[in-house]
Amino acid sequence: MHETRSHETTSIEPGTKGETPARRPARRRRIDMRALSPFIALAVLLVLGAFTSPVFLSVENLTNVATRASFIAIIAVGATFVIAAGGLDLSVGSMAALTAGVMILAMNAVGGADVSTIAIGMAVALGVALACGLFNGLVVTFGRIEPFIVTLGGMGIYRALVVFLAAGGTITMTDWDLRETYRPIYFGDVLGVPIPVIVFLVVAAVAAVVLYKTPFGRHVVAIGSNEDVARFSGVPIRRVRTLTYVIQGLCVGIAILVYVPRLGSATPTTGLLWELQAITAVVIGGTALKGGTPFVWGTVVGALILELVANIMVLSDFVSEYLVGAVQGAIIIIAMLVQRSLQRGR
């Protein structure tokens, strides 16, 4: 959508007042390389993958990849808000585990195997995730503590709570009929498109509209670009900033709604390192870590790239798949280098 700054071509009539007559009127179409580069990287990966294995380009393989990428994609869309406003949330992985654990416990407690049980579970999950996000946001804004520290603390707290609730073991959905009812949310599809993919596309589309078309989104970008300017312009800094963390919480909650039916359980290692993957997806997507330039669709592509890399490594046998983490780590560094060089080029 609005990934390039050049979405509107305003042509400037020659001789308009305010135009310096000596200069040629400029129709300036700026293709922002930063917005394009994740899409180019995606295309390159697809070509690369096609060469490594004949099954790679099969519809089945690609839908699989997209489905598996959906959790990180949804969470990373939330992270795009936080990072665009100049913040950071390291707690999303733990938050995801806690949300999944509480959701399952709630459904087990309610009992029954019909849709209403699931609806209650979903409400509880969203409630937990929103509460975690709100907590992060309020401590950052009203406590005036660095988001790095606050969410590092949150990361520890939420993780410990899961371990505690699971008593060190696993929290599982006890009712097999309920599992059957819930299953399609992860494994089902509409016209061949897996439901998790539909969910992340909808989340991204809504996020893009909120970020690019509403005053709130404009305020997020303003705060991330220069908080002082935003303050002097009357932007309600604390409210906007807190809301970015709440949105992050909401996204974690939604991701968990599609995650739980996949395995039907939560363990102390659920969501481990998701925060790193989410941040990586955001950065690969072209959003600057220092805030101010969010690219929602870039983020989604970033999440797909991470999953594609893993997929290609599994399918091919040049590199051991145990090294997936190393390659993903290398990608974030390369993405930063590319961003840096594009910035210089301007």
Binding site: R5, P215, R218, H219, V221, A222, S225, N226, D228, V229, A230, R231, F232, S233, G234, V235, G292, T293
Partner: peptide
């Protein structure tokens, strides 16, 4: 530059920031 304008944003976004409503 420090408190008045968002230097890395468009002219239109800067113009309307305070009066966005």
């Amino acid at each position: 530059k420090g408190k008045g304008l968002l230097l890395n944003q468009s002219l239109a976004a800067n113009l309307t920031l305070a009066a966005l409503a």
